[in-house]
């Protein structure tokens, strides 16, 4: 019986180890996450502004698509959360699907960047 239990413990630990090997080899480094959300904007100039604003501390890459208006960011989930990126983007004048930009900041945007605002 005693040996049986040790055998059981051994199996349990063994399983833990086998388990670890079955985990997917992450292609993004550990902790790096992706999120996508809508950012309102018009042109290439907007793209530059949005991507620059989005790259706050903890954000590794930021890519905004002019056609779909979707901003994709990869970020370290332990250092930053998407809400901060929403705020950072809105701070330079672009509405997101969660945070609306300040009217004055929006008004100061270049004429070609005067996108139709979020409802």
């Amino acid at each position: 019986m005693k040996y049986g239990i040790f055998f059981g413990l051994f199996l349990l630990f063994n399983m833990g180890a086998a388990q670890a090997q079955n985990m997917p080899a992450a292609s993004t480094p550990a902790g790096l996450m992706t999120t996508k959300f809508k950012v309102y904007g018009n042109c290439g100039m907007c793209e530059q502004r949005i991507e620059k604003a989005a790259k706050i501390k903890g954000v590794k890459t930021a890519d905004w698509d002019v056609d779909t208006k979707i901003l994709a960011i990869t970020f370290n989930g332990k250092k930053v959360t998407p809400a901060k990126v929403h705020k950072a983007v809105a701070a330079v004048g672009h509405d997101t699907d969660m945070v609306k930009a300040d009217d004055k900041t929006y008004a100061k945007l270049h004429a070609c960047c005067q996108y139709d605002r979020a409802q």
Partner: peptide, 16 residues
């Protein structure tokens, strides 16, 4: 709805 591209394997999805 989120478009998931090859290589993306760790998502943060927000619903509103």
């Amino acid at each position: 709805e989120v478009e998931v591209l090859p290589g993306e394997n760790n998502l943060w999805v927000e619903v509103t």
